[in-house]
Simulated assay, not measured.
Amino acid sequence: MTKRQIALVACAVAAATTGLGAAPPSAPEAASASASASRTVHRVKPGESIQKAVDAARPGDSVVLAPGTYRESVTITTSNLTLRGSSASPTVIVPGKAASGTCAVAGHGVCVTGTAQRPVEGVTVRSLTLRNFARNGLWASRTDRLTVRSVTAEKNGNWGIAQERSVRSVLSHNTARDNGDAGLFVSNTTDTEEGAVDTRGTEISHNHLSGNRIGLTVRRLRNVTVDHNEATGNCAAVFVVGDESTPRAGAMRLRHNHVHANNKYCPKTPRLPFLQGSGIVLTGAEETLVAGNRVEDNKGTSPLSGGIVLFKSFVGALNERNEIRDNVVLRNGTADLAHRDTGTGNTFRGNTCGVSEPAGMC
C-alpha cells in the first residue's frame, strides 16, 4: 500500500469514528431511555404496607410484593402502575382488622378507581390471591386498559373480580372460585339505570371459573369478547344480561369456551329464580355470536337451565338477531338448545346437540 492509500484509509476511519460519536439518539430512543430511567420498582415484604408503596409510586412504576400474606385493602388511583405478586410462591391479600380507607370500608380487596373526568389508565394487577373479602376481591371503576392477569379471587362475599364504567380491559388467565355471586362481573354501571356501554373491545379469556353462583356475568355492555374460558361447578356458567334500555346489550362474541357440569344449586333471589344447570344464557341481548363452544352436562330444572338458553329478560326485553352456531352442546337438561322467548332474527345452525326447545334445532 502506498503512502497516499494509507493516508486515505486513515481519513476514512477518522471520519466514520467522528460521525458515530457525534450522532444524537433519535427522539423515540431518547424518550424510551428517559422513561426507563425514571421507572421505579417499589418492593414490599409481608408486614409492610402495600398502600404506602402504591401512594409513593408514579406512573410507570411497579409495586412488587414478596411471597406471603398481607392483611389490608389497597386503592390504586395512579395510571400506568403495576401491582404484582410473586409468580413462584403465593402472594395473598386478605382483610386486615385495622385496615382503613374507602376500599377497606366497602369490603373490597384491591380497588382501581378513576373519575369521569380522569379515568385510571393502563393499570396492571397480576399474580395475586385475593381472599375472604366481604364484597369483592378486585373492584374497578372508571378505568381504561386495565389488565388483570393470573389473579386468584376466592371466597369473597359478592364478586371475585368486578368492574364497571370501564373500557378496553383485559381479564385473562385468572381463577375465580367459591365467590358469593359472580366469579367475574363486568357491567356498564352498578348504581344507576343506563343503556349498554361500548367497551371498545374488552377481552375476557383463558379464565377458570368454579364454585361461584355465576361464573361470568356480562351486564349491559357491547363489544366484548369472551373466549377460551372454562366454567364448571357453578350454579350457572355464563350470563349475558340486557334490558329494554338503549343502546341495548349485545354485539359480543362468545367463542371456544368449555362450559361443563355447572350443577351447583343456588336458591332464588328477588331478581332471579333458583339456579342450577345453566350453561350459556342470553337475556335481552342482540347481535351476539355464540360459536365453537363445548357446553356439556349442565343439568337442572330451573327456567334458566339448559346448555345454551335464550330467555327474555325479567323486564321483558327480548333476544334479537343473535347467532348460535357450530357449538357442541350435549347431555344438558332440560335441553341442549333452548329458545324460550319470542325475539326474532335469532339463528341456530351447525350445532351438535341432542334435545332442543322447540324441537328441530339440532
Results as ranks from 00 to 15, higher is better:
117 Q>C: 02
93 I>W: 08
86 S>V: 05
91 T>Q: 11
98 A>S: 07
101 G>V: 15
99 A>K: 11
109 G>H: 06
111 C>H: 08
101 G>D: 12
90 P>R: 13
103 C>Y: 14
113 T>E: 04
105 V>Y: 14
87 S>N: 12
103 C>P: 15
94 V>Y: 12
105 V>G: 11
103 C>A: 11
115 T>G: 00
103 C>V: 13
99 A>H: 15
102 T>K: 11
91 T>I: 14
105 V>K: 09
108 H>K: 07
83 L>C: 03
106 A>L: 10
92 V>F: 10
82 T>E: 02
108 H>E: 09
83 L>K: 02
82 T>N: 02
96 G>V: 07
92 V>Y: 10
86 S>D: 04
94 V>T: 04
96 G>K: 07
98 A>G: 03
96 G>D: 09
90 P>G: 13
88 A>S: 08
117 Q>P: 00
88 A>W: 05
113 T>P: 12
95 P>H: 08
104 A>M: 11
85 G>Y: 06
93 I>V: 06
104 A>P: 12
89 S>G: 11
105 V>I: 15
114 G>K: 00
115 T>E: 00
102 T>G: 13
111 C>I: 08
96 G>W: 08
92 V>K: 10
94 V>A: 03
115 T>I: 00
106 A>K: 08
82 T>L: 00
91 T>W: 15
86 S>C: 05
87 S>G: 13
116 A>S: 02
93 I>M: 07
110 V>I: 03
